[in-house]
């Protein structure tokens, strides 16, 4: 906690001692007072003025749509017809009994679980490796970020070849060369999750590794040297020094990944070949894809708004759970 004094009004600047009203006013003094007032006003209001543009933009493009979505979610609403009447909580009631919503939530959580956990662990290990003295460290570090800056279109083409069907898929061709059965990447739920998780990890592991690496580089080297002298193994150093010191960074990445993954959209959409439907039976349709399908394919804006709001609440809950869980990583203090 910072001290409360930060928020308190500034103490009177020098030059104002003596107080007002004890002497007859003269023009110089009045001018000085005015300028004092300006200074005080400046000190008090400037910070707010500086942050105003953000809040204005956030209000227009963030908060307003957010609240407007609540309004829409309480109505029957379509693209062409616009507002078609108040529906109360009907959309939310429908959502609770909607198999497709639960299916989408199951998919989202499932893909989240098999994508994020390995991703962050791998990122941590990669960062630790790159934090050591190795040849061409910079080349490796740059390589990490390459997937992140690769265009989505390229990603889609490459992975559609890798995870292609029996006839033309790269992995399947290798499997059949080895005499193994082909994998139905598109058709089977859990295989499709695996493929999508691979795409996600390919794109985001390097990004997280770089964040970890930056944090690791601020850990003083003498801590490790001391640990070396005490005969601590590499693994022990990693577990007992690196991870605790990285705690704030780990919390940050976990929360950011959670928010991102709960709104997962891009990878499953480009993995499939039927738009927002997420596979022939919705076996990899995420909640966000359902929102898009209801909005743009079916034009049920009201229902889509309700789903996005529930998704928002789920993200908040997941975020809180995350904070609670990661706060149990033992800190450095």
């Amino acid at each position: 906690m910072t001290s409360l004094q930060h928020g308190a009004p500034p103490s009177p600047p020098p030059g104002s001692e003596g107080g007002a009203g004890t002497r007859p006013p003269d023009p110089d003094r009045a001018r000085a007072r005015r300028s004092q007032m300006w200074t005080r006003l400046d000190i008090r209001t400037s910070p707010y003025l500086f942050i105003t543009p953000f809040f204005l933009l956030f209000g227009v493009f963030g908060l307003f749509p957010l609240l407007y979505t609540v309004w829409v979610s309480l109505h029957d609403w379509s693209l062409i017809g616009g507002n078609e009447g108040f529906a109360g909580l009907d959309n939310y009631v429908r959502l609770v009994g909607d198999e497709k919503f639960w299916n989408a939530l199951y998919n989202t959580l499932g893909i989240f679980a098999i994508a994020v956990v390995p991703q962050l662990l791998l990122a941590l290990l990669l960062a630790d490796t790159l934090n050591r003295r190795i040849r061409m460290a910079n080349v490796f570090r740059m390589t990490l970020i390459l997937p992140y800056i690769t265009s989505i279109a390229a990603l889609a083409i490459v992975f559609s070849v890798v995870f292609g069907g029996e006839q033309f898929g790269l992995i399947n061709q290798v499997l059949s060369a080895l005499g193994l059965d082909p994998v139905a990447w598109q058709a089977e739920r859990y295989w499709s999750w695996t493929a999508i998780a691979t795409m996600i990890d390919w794109r985001w592991t390097g990004y997280n590794a770089l964040i970890y690496l930056a944090a690791m580089q601020s850990v003083p080297k003498d801590v490790y040297e001391a640990a070396d002298l005490d005969g601590a193994s590499r693994l022990r150093q990693f577990v007992q020094i690196t991870v605790p010191l990285l705690r704030p960074t780990i919390i940050f990445t976990v929360i950011i990944s959670t928010i991102g993954q709960m709104q997962l959209f891009t990878e499953p959409t480009i993995f499939g070949n039927n738009g927002y439907a997420g596979g022939s039976q919705g076996q990899f349709q995420t909640v966000m894809m359902l929102v898009f399908q209801e909005t743009f394919d079916y034009q049920n804006f009201g229902y889509a708004a309700a789903v996005s709001w529930v998704l928002f609440l789920i993200v908040v809950v997941m975020g809180l759970i995350n904070v609670w869980l990661t706060s149990r990583i033992k800190g450095a203090e």
């Binding site: 889609a156 891009t266 959409t269 480009i270 993995f271 070949n273 898009f292």
Partner: peptide
């Protein structure tokens, strides 16, 4: 023609519609 539709669909998510 639906080829590439999914890629485009993904990009639409980024506000291309607007």
């Amino acid at each position: 023609r639906r080829r590439g539709a999914s890629v485009a669909a993904a990009l639409v998510g980024g506000g291309a519609v607007l």
